[in-house]
Design a protein around this nucleic acid. Structure first.
Lengths: 136, 136
DNA sequence: CTAAACCTTAAAGTTTACTCTAAGTCAATA
DNA sequence: TATTGACTTAGAGTAAACTTTAAGGTTTAG
């Protein structure tokens, strides 16, 4: 059993965010102490792992809540869950391909500016003693 | 020369967004017709290409505005521009590695649920004529 | 036994990046 | 020339995902 504080440390989510996720239906059935404090199990942590995975790959909290609610509705929702995951996987793959394309552009631009900078600094060194020699 | 409508089509950004980007300092010096209409040049389009590239790889509009303003401030800002791009490139690489890790998890989950679904449908077919046969 | 450090809820506030509205100007066409 | 439709600005509104606040109950170390 973990306190909300423990879980916050383990997941990197703030305690505020953990309560918020519960309110939004992303985490369900977290047990409580007699005093009403949340007591997370290892299963809850696992569920949070999936939630973070989906969230960090661009799934909206609303969709995640939908997925979680399907998970709790029994086996007749398996087809829809599979279809959601399959679609999401496609989205992630597309996103990664796009990122790679953009990365190439950033790399190219960086090369371009680096060369420009080298030329500029060479010229600067030739023409004058520069006050900003100690630039890292 | 392109109208805001043309540029909207070419970039996929709405006309609202294009004006908004201008207001926020992401695009500068767009020419105007005698009637005050925006007239974008090929250079503006190129600049927009870089803006979209940076934005779609996770740079905030504020940072992009900063980069653009450096670009317009002369060669003494080259070092900072290079450093921004270098840092951004690192971020993109980190993000891609993270995505790959999460993708593996999604793939694994998908496999898990697909197998569960197959088992479920097999059992379903064995035990009863199901009303929802025409599921895709 | 009391004070500090936790926990609770409900609700308001914040940030980012748009997106839309209103009121008016400009351009091309019937 | 009148109307349609695209353009202009300023500013209000929206959605998502938190984040903070307020007001109060619980637990545990000293």
């Amino acid at each position: 059993m973990y306190s909300i504080q423990d879980v916050s440390k383990k997941t990197g989510l703030s305690t505020h965010t953990l309560r918020y996720y519960e309110k939004e239906g992303l985490i369900c059935g977290v047990e409580r102490s007699q005093g009403g404090f949340r007591q997370y199990t290892d299963e809850d942590l696992e569920a949070l792992g999936l939630i973070c995975c989906l969230k960090n790959t661009g799934m909206s909290l609303q969709e995640i809540a939908r997925f979680v609610s399907l998970t709790r509705s029994g086996e007749h929702t398996l087809a829809e869950r599979v279809s959601m995951l399959r679609q999401h996987r496609e989205n992630v793959l597309d996103r990664m391909a796009e990122m790679q394309k953009y990365l190439d552009k950033v790399t190219w631009k960086l090369k371009f500016y680096t060369e420009k900078l080298n030329a500029y600094e060479a010229a600067e060194g030739k023409n004058s003693e520069c006050a900003c020699k100690d630039r890292a």
